[in-house]
């Protein structure tokens, strides 16, 4: 894990994520969750997402954030994947629920 984290300065780090493993959407959803603690910048370099984190205040533990980010992107990918599987069912469900009042 530590190899993909590159510490730049005390409050800045770079995270590299293999772009073939995760959808861009999953990456963005995961990143969104950390925008309270950090400023983020995302770039696609070769076949990696490079995510640049700069903590908003000194008390943030960047390494912990990196570890959590790793788990978070997995969960977001799962949400995306299974979400595609049930997307149609959800739409049907809502449609059915309101079918008696729709025109």
């Amino acid at each position: 894990m530590k190899e993909i984290i590159k510490k730049i300065e005390e409050n800045k780090m770079l995270l590299k994520i293999d772009s073939s493993l995760y959808d861009k959407e999953a990456l963005l959803q995961a990143s969104y969750k950390f925008t309270d603690k950090c400023y983020l910048n995302i770039e696609l370099v070769d076949n990696h997402f490079e995510i640049y984190f700069e903590s908003k205040n000194d008390s943030e533990n960047l390494e912990k954030i990196a570890l959590n980010f790793g788990n978070e992107i997995i969960d977001q990918q799962i949400r995306l994947q299974t979400g595609r599987e049930f997307k149609e069912v959800r739409e049907q469900l809502v449609k059915k629920a309101f079918s008696s009042i729709s025109k």
Binding site: R79, T82, V89
Partner: peptide
């Protein structure tokens, strides 16, 4: 099996 809408 079919996965139905859920959140986790």
């Amino acid at each position: 099996y079919q996965i139905l809408p859920y959140r986790f």
